[in-house]
Write a protein that binds this DNA or RNA. Sequence first.
DNA 1: TGACTTTAGTCACAATAAGTGACTAATTCG
DNA 2: CGAATTAGTCACTTATTGTGACTAAAGTCA
Lengths: 223, 223
Amino acid sequence: MRERSARTNPLTVDVVLATAMGSELGVLLTRGSGERERWSLPWRLSQAGEIMDIAATKVAQDALGEPPIWIEQIGAFGDGKRHPSDAEISVAFVGLVPHETASPRAGYTWFPMGDHPPLTPRQRAMVEAATKTLQGRLDQAPIAFRLLPLTFTLSELQQMYELLLGKRLHKASFRRALQAAWLVEPTDEWRSEGRGRPAQLFRYSPKKRRRPHRGVRFDFLYP
Amino acid sequence: MRERSARTNPLTVDVVLATAMGSELGVLLTRGSGERERWSLPWRLSQAGEIMDIAATKVAQDALGEPPIWIEQIGAFGDGKRHPSDAEISVAFVGLVPHETASPRAGYTWFPMGDHPPLTPRQRAMVEAATKTLQGRLDQAPIAFRLLPLTFTLSELQQMYELLLGKRLHKASFRRALQAAWLVEPTDEWRSEGRGRPAQLFRYSPKKRRRPHRGVRFDFLYP
DNA sequence: TGACTTTAGTCACAATAAGTGACTAATTCG
DNA sequence: CGAATTAGTCACTTATTGTGACTAAAGTCA
């Protein structure tokens, strides 16, 4: 992150980095180096000719030491809302980081996504949009899998879905749907988590495509 | 659209205007005023402090005389791909226009979305992304309804869905799902379209929300 | 006019998919 | 050992979707 210089480049790339923090999502914020008492999303000025996805990955890498395991553009935000830079427009990305990997560098801290320090209006809009993007993509991309370590128990996977969807799921239904989708494969490892029966570990390993040749759905939400 | 002046403002707002052209979607292109033999999406340079949605609406209005009935941002496109301007970044929107309204001003022409004259790589990417956005939002927003006139027959609505989805639908299933969603209301008009039995006209008039309290779906598509 | 064609609109049944409670299994705790 | 706890599965019920066939209201044409 450099000094404000909106005159030469009125464009920033901002990244909403998300991880699973226990029972809720976390977002990574930074107070910057010598800046005043104000948290912000990690960002950088866009450089001429630079590919935006790569810029976003670099922003994440500066914050965490390694690139996020999944990243996607959310959109362009402008509309007069303020930003830590004076950039006219900021292009926002969401990045996912498994909790293991998620050790931030100095100056960066994880906050609960639903309860973080105040941000500028523009960046607040980005965090909200990121949450929506994640929820919306949940059944189109392996969001939940990317937030988990390489191997995980089915209960952990279900909890991740519950966290992202914000509602409880029935165990048997969840597993039945998961089986039908051919997305996980058992390892030969088991994990004993204190009390109950040990759980088998699985890994994300999509096998065959199941074509959802369903009809139409009218699931909106207007207008 | 003004002359190229990427130095002062390296950002454009581009709009993919879509309409239903008989049995396929149409996209609006322009050859500009004094420009060389090259078609392009309608666009304009972003002005400081201007709200992007409004800029996009203006672009559409310049092209059609009235604003699109629905508009949504697709995202920011850059990545070194060329653009009619020399802008570093372009923010793209999709706009929907019912076929009735769709009389373009001089210099603008509708082309089939699947078979249009060559565009710059960046704008080609926008058209592709617009198609995906429309398909993806089809069950979350009244895309099909917005492409139809205010009143329409259920067969027309089904054909619009078939067009957007790229597959045939079963009449009984389609109507059953539509009824369950409480989205249309019959008018007292009927339309006789030549041969068969006249069809009743309906209008889009969403009544009550049905909450899809479904479980999870694993509909991806990787990775 | 009346048989045939064409499109609209609906029904009933079959096939799938999803919701749910109860059951068995493998551990720890005391 | 027995209760508590978590994993994993089954079987049954209920909801949703797929599908062909049916009735209705036009036009066409001999």
